[in-house]
């Protein structure tokens, strides 16, 4: 395994110091790997991702990416360390795919955002890598949900960061686009030659597990994350921790959750 690319040390996250959602996390994510966060609503998936992305201060502890401490980095320098993909609503329907992807170069360009020929080449490569290059001149507003999400992933790729954080990147997509997007994440990570890793949260456990190397599950009982390789986690039964007591089991053959009732009837 490569040297850890993302590392946290005794990280505590939450909105209020007297009510931390997760405590004393010592997380590690190696280069070229995909980790999937699994947890129920309100468990703190988004809170953890926001904290790692620097938009929420940690209650305690520290975060480093590729050896760089995130604390005290300016927004522009932070943007060179990590890129995000969300499903936030945007007002960017009037930007073309190319213009949107070019926003990924903002941390590297001057005050007017003028792109160098190198920036242009990186934008083009990002669009090609995500399979959205033929829509380069289309406004975002005319794309399907799946295509728009590819454009947002291309924006993150163009940012050329060691880490990508994705908060429910497939939540508004249809089934084909979900599977397609997950496979895209795998290709991007493999193509980086170990220089880029992805941490994503997803309710869409099946397709996410297909491409994941690691699984990080929330254990709400003790405010922590249980982490391990996909096989370890499935083998140890840790997959059922987030939904303990809710009549949900992890179906090993399907690689997804199912109801306790189904299991019994088989």
């Amino acid at each position: 395994m490569n040297a850890p690319l993302l590392r946290t040390s005794r990280l505590t996250v939450g909105y209020r110091a007297d009510k931390p959602l997760l405590e004393d996390l010592d997380l590690e994510l190696g280069g070229g790997r995909i980790a999937v966060l699994i947890g129920g609503n309100g468990a703190g998936k988004s809170t953890l991702l926001r904290t790692l992305a620097g938009s929420l201060r940690p209650l305690a502890g520290s975060i480093s990416i590729a050896g760089t401490e995130l604390r005290d980095l300016s927004k522009a320098d932070l943007a060179k360390q990590l890129a995000i993909v969300t499903t936030d609503r945007t007002m960017a329907g009037g930007l073309t795919v190319e213009e949107t992807v070019a926003i990924g170069r903002h941390p590297y360009t001057g005050i007017f955002g003028r792109l160098s020929s190198r920036d242009r080449a990186i934008v083009r490569e990002a669009m090609e890598a995500t399979g959205i290059a033929e829509k380069a001149k289309e406004p975002l507003g005319r794309l399907s949900d799946g295509e728009r999400q590819k454009a947002m992933i291309a924006r993150a790729v163009a940012q050329q960061t060691p880490l990508m954080l994705m908060d429910e990147p497939t939540s508004f997509l249809d089934v084909a686009a979900r599977i397609d997007t997950m496979a895209l994440l795998r290709r991007l990570t493999d193509a980086s030659g170990g220089r880029m890793s992805i941490l994503l949260s997803s309710h869409d456990v099946g397709p996410a597990l297909e491409v994941a190397d690691e699984v990080w599950v929330f254990d709400p009982a003790i405010h922590t994350l249980v982490c391990g390789s996909k096989d370890e986690m499935i083998g140890s039964g840790a997959m059922e921790l987030p939904f303990a007591g809710r009549g949900i089991v992890f179906d090993i053959r399907r690689g997804d959750y199912s109801s306790y009732m189904n299991k019994q009837s088989e």
């Binding site: 943007a79 926003i103 903002h106 924006r155």
Partner: peptide, 21 residues
Amino acid sequence: FFAKPLDALLLGERYAANSGV
């Protein structure tokens, strides 16, 4: 002089912050 951050803001607060704004 605000054209660049304004474009980033079109993507919403989180994306804008992630683009260095």
